[in-house]
Amino acid sequence: MIEVHDLVKRYGATTAVDGLSFTVKPGRVTGFLGPNGAGKSTTMRMIIGLDRPTAGLALINGKRYREHKAPLCVAGALLEARSIHRGRSARTHLLGLARTHGLPDGRVGEVLEEAGIANVARRRAGTFSLGMGQRLGIAAALLGDPAVVILDEPVNGLDPDGVLWVRTLIRELAADGRTVLVSSHLMSEMAVTADHLVIVGGGRLLADTTVDELIGRVAPASVTVRTPEAVRLRSSLLSHGATVSSSEAGELSVAGLDAPDIGALAAAAGIVLHELTPRRASLEQAYMELTR
């Protein structure tokens, strides 16, 4: 569990994070969304104790990150910029981290295997592609088998295989009961992985909600209906409280009634339907609406 209370970070005159509060619960994937510069990375660095908050508090499992005796076993983080010395191999990079905690060397082999980079473990990290660097960063985050996993833009630079791997991994981590906070500026990515959303803009909280609720709130669902008897159907729908608009002859866009209701109404009135399609706003549309 991550609790963020009234977190503020100022750099001179600019305010990167402006009184942010939210809670990340275990057992589900929480997407941390916002445009570039919204304060996502800064917030994540403050949670991990790398950046000192100007005000406010971030707690992991009830304590500040730095108060934990074995922090890597409590929370693992992949931070946006690379955190690897180019001159060391993936293996020695991870060994260096593991040994601070007295983790067995065998654990390094396990996470290298899990991240799919065991075959390049002895190569200098300077020769790694962006995707391999990203996998190494995720391996480092998993090293201490932490209950809280924080990933900043994990699919950046990954090929389609890697993207799929990250998606599956994130879902599995949450299914294990871990707390998972994943940042992204890619809505489509969050739409398929996140259960819960924390959306920020300009360092402030814009929404703390579920994917469905957000889409429903910002852009109500509608149903597209095509019928040769549009005029008759329209009056029938209006009398049942629906809102109807039409962009072309024979096509209606209906809000306020769902597809089964519309179908039943049409059947009762003996109206032939050619199409009955529920339309849902995409997360992307909802997000654009929210951050506009």
Binding site: R45, I48, G49, L50, Y65, R66, H68, P71, L72, A77, L79, A81, R82, S83, I84, H85, R86, G87, H93, G96, L97, T100, H101, A140
Partner: peptide
């Protein structure tokens, strides 16, 4: 400086927050 220049310092200080 090798820690700061490469960004490794973030991983190092995440492991040893003190």
């Amino acid at each position: 400086t090798g820690e700061y220049g490469s960004g490794l310092v973030r991983a190092t200080f995440a492991a040893v927050p003190a």
